[in-house]
Write a protein that binds this DNA or RNA. Structure first.
Length: 430
RNA sequence: GUGGGUGUAGCUCAGGUGGUUAGAGCGUUGGAUUGUGGCUCCAAAGGCCGAGGGUUCGAAUCCCUCCACCCACCCCA
């Protein structure tokens, strides 16, 4: 069972028929992006390590202990991307996109890599799809991005989700709030859990989100950042909520929502499921108004989200929506006797050239076995070529659903197949 | 990274206190008169019992170490 190789820890193979679900998910997303007018961007799987350490932030878990970093043969430090946004922003800056009143709207589908302990819904190589809208400072684009995310899950049928929404302030107000928070927590810091004592240094906002009951009690009366926003952040926050109302996106304000990447400013959001275990965050995103400048571009605001493909599929499965689209109707070409070999191959070739899905037997098996496998592939029709048929320049056409079989002239075979498939397609639709 | 659980055919699982040729269902393949599927019946193939060590006359079963997966924490997608 395992004297050979196994997929590395935290990675997995996507085999048929599961791969058909991935295709469906991606095609729904691509179609949605086309309607929202986002265009695809593809960036390298690895980048200069400093792009991530600076962009995501040195104190974050991702940079601190989860990156796949290596030195290439030229002595460069490179890192397999642990998330998608930094690369997109780097590409945006490198290509000198943007300009006054210019909005760039991208979507991507990619793998990301984080060295974490694997568990359900958490992998070392995982897959995301996401969008980035770079250039507009106003709340309407925030609402559009969140709305796109909501539409994606609605169309996929992932079941009930909770949309958590928060604002985490900007360079004007967040540092002041953080200092105030530290000041208020310091006196009783030793009563908090060890994790919180660590968070006190790295990311004190996260203490408010601690699940240890005692920590919750201790921080219960601490005012949330919503009460400490600067006027500009308040205006943005109010505008965002009005915009979300206008496009019918429901949400719940969650003052404890903090994201794990340093580049976020103002808007932060997460889509959560209660059906897929402890890794319950299906997607997350927010505004990153300082990131473009940090990557060497002119100061430019941006916002985006990233959605986990594996987790979306898990939620779809729980919701009973993980059904692959039916495979296209196909034709099975069977043959009886050695003399028919070339004739059968030729017939299959013509079917495929005509755009019809066709398969055949590859083991020189008897006719019974061929029809059995025709049945198991779900073929609707079988074309049977044998000595008898060839003698009169014909083929046998068998309807595998009704069992009816007729002999048709070879020259008409394609047309007959075409019309039968068309008729059945029409019947299926009703 | 921390704590706990699991690991027997492709899949889902049986295999009291160690004892000869390790089982079932599903799936796969073949057969049930010469060239005809689905249903049924019959049969076969397929496992170094996750890997490697150890204890023992003897290990799927006991011990150790790895590996992988699962659950929770942590973190996040």
């Amino acid at each position: 069972m395992s004297s050979g190789f196994l997929a590395p820890r935290g990675t997995r193979d996507v085999l048929p028929p599961e791969s058909a679900l991935w295709q469906r998910l991606e095609s729904v997303f691509r179609d949605l992006c086309a309607r929202f007018r986002y265009e695809e961007i593809r960036t390298p799987v690895f980048e200069d390590t400093r792009l991530f350490s600076r962009g995501i932030g040195d104190s974050t878990d991702i940079v601190n202990k989860e990156m796949y970093t290596f030195t290439d043969r030229g002595g460069r430090s490179l890192t397999l991307r642990p998330e998608g946004t930094a690369s997109v922003v780097r590409a945006y800056v490198q290509a000198k996109l943007g300009g006054p009143n210019h909005l760039s709207k991208f979507f991507y589908v990619c793998s990301i890599f984080r060295y974490e302990r694997p568990q359900q819904g958490r992998y070392r190589q995982s897959h995301q799809l996401g969008v980035e809208a770079i250039g507009s400072p106003g709340p309407d684009i925030d609402a559009e991005v969140i709305g796109l995310n909501a539409a994606l899950y609605a169309e996929l049928g992932v079941g009930e989700l909770a949309v958590h929404l928060n604002t985490i302030g900007c360079q004007e107000c967040r540092p002041a709030y953080r200092d105030r928070l530290r000041h208020q927590l310091r006196s009783r810091l030793d009563e908090f859990c060890p994790d919180c004592q660590r968070r006190f240094e790295t990311n004190p906002l996260r203490i408010l989100d601690c699940k240890v009951p005692r920590c919750g009690e201790l921080s219960a009366d601490i005012p949330s950042i919503l009460d400490a926003l600067c006027p500009a952040c308040v205006a943005h926050w109010d505008g965002l909520r009005r915009a979300l109302d206008a496009i019918d996106v429901g949400y719940q304000v969650d003052p404890k929502l903090v994201r794990g990447l340093d580049y976020y400013t103002r808007t932060a959001f997460e889509f959560k499921s209660n059906a897929i275990g402890s890794q319950d965050s299906l997607s997350g995103g927010g505004r990153y108004d300082g990131l473009v400048e940090l990557c060497g571009g002119r100061p430019t605001p941006g916002i985006g989200f990233a959605a986990g493909i594996e987790r979306a599929l898990m939620a779809m499965e729980r919701a009973g929506a993980a059904v692959a689209k039916g495979t296209r109707p196909s034709v099975f070409v069977a043959r009886a006797g050695e003399a028919a070999r070339s004739a059968a191959l030729r017939l299959m070739h013509e079917l495929r050239e005509a755009g019809i899905a066709a398969d055949t037997d590859y083991f020189d098996r008897g006719l019974k076995a061929q029809l059995r496998s025709a049945d198991s592939t779900g073929a609707w029709l079988a074309l049977i070529v044998g000595d008898e048929e060839m003698a009169e320049g014909a083929v046998a056409l068998r309807d595998l659903v009704s069992g009816e079989q007729v002999r048709v002239p070879r020259a008409q075979a394609l047309d007959r197949v075409r019309s039968l498939l068309a008729a059945r397609n029409g019947a299926n639709r009703s």
